[in-house]
Design a protein around this nucleic acid. Structure first.
Lengths: 140, 140
DNA sequence: TGCAACTATTGCACGTGTGCAACTAAGGAG
DNA sequence: CTCCTTAGTTGCACACGTGCAATAGTTGCA
């Protein structure tokens, strides 16, 4: 099996898994993405979140409402500009979601831990290039 | 920035990009996943597709209907069992979707092409381990 | 041949997420 | 102070995907 085929299967599996994980946690795709962003990028305003997810202001408000109801996020006033509302991840996640994430973290972590320095470097190069490419493609 | 942080950002970007790509092609998340599976795994019956996506039979039929209407997939009779319907990818994709995919394939391909053999090996190990882990986690 | 199990499709009704438009509150320029 | 812009929230209506139940066609076993 060549690298391209392996890559296509990998991508399909990643997306499928994460959508299933969202579902297992009782979250829609939008809410799951919002939670992921808040987790990986840190607190941000409602507007920033909406722009990143390409959501209307109202849809953003509703998504944050749902995350708060689920205990995943919380709102805080922005001290610099009281029109803005900071949204931040509480660190909590639904149990079903945590279970599913834990199942993949172990085997993947083990595989990465077994890599030589040069091999891990290759993975890092890919991760950074792909992250930048994905973001860049959406910015245009 | 450590590897774990880079990885979290990468995952968020991957999922976000692919959902945005689906949207750009006028597809819902389910249809996009179905198309990805048909592309990477080859033709399969409606039932197999539904089980992989964890969809009810009726939702599966509807998803395939939409893919066919979009020209992405087609149905074919299964010669061995005429109850079954084989679904296969036509190779076509909506223009907006192709555009977005092309934008990321180039920079990612360039980054991977620049890897040494050892580095590329590391990436391959990760891709295969992750694919298996994601699939395994959903099978249980 | 008759009958049970299986595959896929359709009618129907429901829940969910979304955008638009109107509104409130807060900042900034004149 | 007044006006204009920006940030976020709410009422409302709509489109979409989904599951359930019923149906048609097919297979295989008794």
């Amino acid at each position: 099996m060549d690298l391209t085929t392996a890559y296509r299967r990998y991508l399909a599996a990643v997306v499928r898994f994460h959508l299933a994980a969202a579902d297992a946690g009782g979250l829609g795709a939008t809410d799951y993405q919002a939670a992921s962003l808040l987790d990986s990028e840190g607190p941000m305003t409602s507007g920033e979140l909406g722009r990143m997810l390409r959501l209307s202001p109202s849809a953003t408000t509703r998504a944050v409402d749902r995350l708060i109801a689920a205990g995943i996020a919380e709102r805080a006033a922005d001290p610099d500009d009281r029109r803005r509302i900071l949204v931040r991840h509480t660190g909590l996640l639904p149990d079903g979601l945590l279970d599913l994430l834990a199942r993949v973290q172990e085997p993947i972590g083990a595989a990465v831990a077994g890599l030589t320095d040069a091999q891990r470097e290759g993975l890092e190069v890919y991760l950074r290039a792909a992250t930048e490419a994905y973001r860049g493609a959406l910015d245009r």
